[in-house]
Design a protein around this nucleic acid. Structure first.
Lengths: 343, 343
DNA sequence: ATATTCAGTGCAATCGATTACATAAAATAA
DNA sequence: TTATTTTATGTAATCGATTGCACTGAATAT
């Protein structure tokens, strides 16, 4: 069955030339005569030749593989980043290996190990929520493998990164709620070690301050921001003496869970409680009322990441490399869940 | 910067032994003395040794890479299949390369080419909607690379496959609608060359027949089943003389689009029109009314696929390989969009 | 005491493609 | 015509890990 794969040596033998000539002919080397190229190409076709990129990778020391580490693939945001990455890399000869960390540091470490063993030419990563130490990432950099962090940024070591301006996004969202007449705005936030949540919180607080609204620690609720967390936080809220008039959630999922519970409890969205999420997950436009949210240009983020890598590959040789950070400006998407009639 | 990577030769030189001994020590070969293993391991650690799996792959002829081809990563179903695959493969030493075909045959072909060049040990694929000829897949099989198709099945060539019983799922869904008192049930179907859509349609028709309901060709509407298609089909429907009392859509997205339009047009869901989708996308439980659907055990499908591959790897040597097909039984998930009060 | 087994390593080929460095033949220059 | 350049190809080393075979010295058997 599994007929031995054809190699350049097989082609060479058949044409009575050497493997090096075949190799060059296949790569369209200028020093190879047209006639030889013709016959090599023809024979390759005839023998159903498939290059062994592993052999080439070993020799050249470059695998043409890019490792991408994401917390989970079943989030629209990450899937979309990957689309962006693939669009750019498509046709450049690079292939993408995707690893999921499930937001676990251990899994993240083993992903990195696997990618390094696979000799990837670069790693794009959005680190796990659990991650607090970046030693395993520093390791990548020290090995000379280009590393680009996306989405979640950090300051503890200097590295290429692409993210959105979470501060600005949160600021816009909060200010929008204030414009709608909301005064008591709850904020759902995530683990403190994740920069995006810190930044969103800062944006939220800054918007309040700028509008002369007292920042109240008790209105900032921390959770894992999943659907279920949103539900239980909302349930808590319904037992408060004074119900807040808005929720700005750092995640669409938590916003969704909260909306579900509040609706069931008889609150009107947005008139009793206006809600706005973050990420523009695909379901946000489908639910009723449609959920306002902040779009992070996920696809564009993927494209930027990939382009940053390609740029670096070009420069690598001559210039000294300096890490750079790119920050995309997020877009506020206003839908029914935060649009009040009265305002 | 990029300090040369440590190889087994470096370790060998350091310990004044040969690379072969190092290699064996690292692989815990029984013929290597405990003391040598100890020192090799220690030195590997000290020198920050990272195995080069590309070199090993070339020598052994096996890359420990699995290629997975999916139409798109930003569909819950496929993301979930991948989770299942990874869960099983996790710890077996296999890594997963994910390629997206965007439902295009050309992209699918180039994906396969890239995976073959990367010397993957196996390919799991859900073929593109566009795909009608399977020559590029046959090619994979002829090269002796294990190929397992998942989700979308076909009969034109015999190959390992894991899918759900689309017929049964559709049958259950349709029968449920009939039980709810629906008589005029529209079916949204997809391209005829995709087996899952054919099977779902057969299930739909069979359920009607068994319940003495005339099958009406005009009630079967073909589209690409995207959100937008659902919207425009629903718009069409609202202009019909007699509005149907139910829609069974082969896709949650189209069902969602239709629900949106019908709600806006003032129809009550489910009392005027009951709706049921297919796939249990994550948004289905979030919308209002929650969308009934058919769950395809996506994660389990991924697990089955991966296990089928592992099994085959074990057997490969001795026995002759016979393709097998596994069919999972889908689960009907009844939510508000199809639950009538009157029944 | 000699023969046999075995534990522990080393030697060298190998996987397939690439590439620096020859080399031979043809073309051009002097 | 001889020298020089150019064209087209061959030679052989290389990437790093693996592995069949060979080898040495020690342990065990006869």
């Amino acid at each position: 069955m599994a007929s031995k794969r054809t190699t350049i040596h097989d082609i060479a033998r058949e044409l009575d030339i050497t493997a090096s000539t075949v190799s060059r002919a296949l790569k369209d080397h200028p020093r190879i005569s047209e006639s030889t190229k013709k016959s090599v190409l023809a024979m390759a076709e005839e023998m159903n030749y498939q290059p062994n990129s592993i052999a080439a990778a070993l020799r050249r020391g470059t695998s043409n593989l890019i490792g991408v580490i994401i917390p989970t693939a079943d989030r629209n945001f990450f899937a979309s980043v990957i689309r962006g990455v693939e669009e750019v890399l498509n046709g450049t000869g690079y292939n993408v290996i995707i690893c999921q960390s499930n937001d676990s540091v251990e899994k993240e470490k083993s992903n990195i190990k696997a990618l390094l063993e696979a000799q990837v030419d670069g790693i794009f990563a959005s680190y796990a929520k659990e991650t607090t130490s970046f030693d395993h990432y520093k390791d990548v950099v020290e090995r000379g493998i280009p590393l680009i962090l996306f989405d979640r940024m950090q300051d503890s070591f200097d590295v290429d990164a692409v993210g959105v301006d979470d501060f600005a996004g949160a600021f816009k969202a909060t200010e929008h709620l204030i414009e709608q007449g909301c005064k008591k705005i709850v904020h759902f936030t995530g683990p403190d070690n994740v920069s995006i949540y810190r930044d969103r919180r800062r944006g939220y607080e800054e918007a309040l301050k700028r509008n002369q609204i007292q920042v109240d620690e008790k209105l900032v609720l921390t959770s894992d921001l999943k659907l279920e967390a949103g539900r239980s936080l909302a349930l808590d809220i319904t037992s408060w003496a004074e119900i807040p008039d808005a929720i700005f959630s750092a995640s669409d999922y938590a916003a969704m869970g909260a909306m579900e519970v509040l609706k069931n409890k008889g609150f009107s969205i947005p008139d009793d409680v206006a809600i706005i999420g973050f990420s523009n997950e695909s379901f946000t436009s489908l639910v009723d009322p449609a959920l306002s949210t902040v779009d992070q240009h996920s696809k564009k983020m993927g494209q930027f990441t990939a382009n940053m890598f390609l740029d670096r590959m070009k420069k690598e040789k001559d210039s000294i490399y300096t890490p750079s950070k790119t920050v995309l400006s997020p877009e506020l998407i206003i839908r029914k869940s935060s649009l009040r009639n009265n305002s």
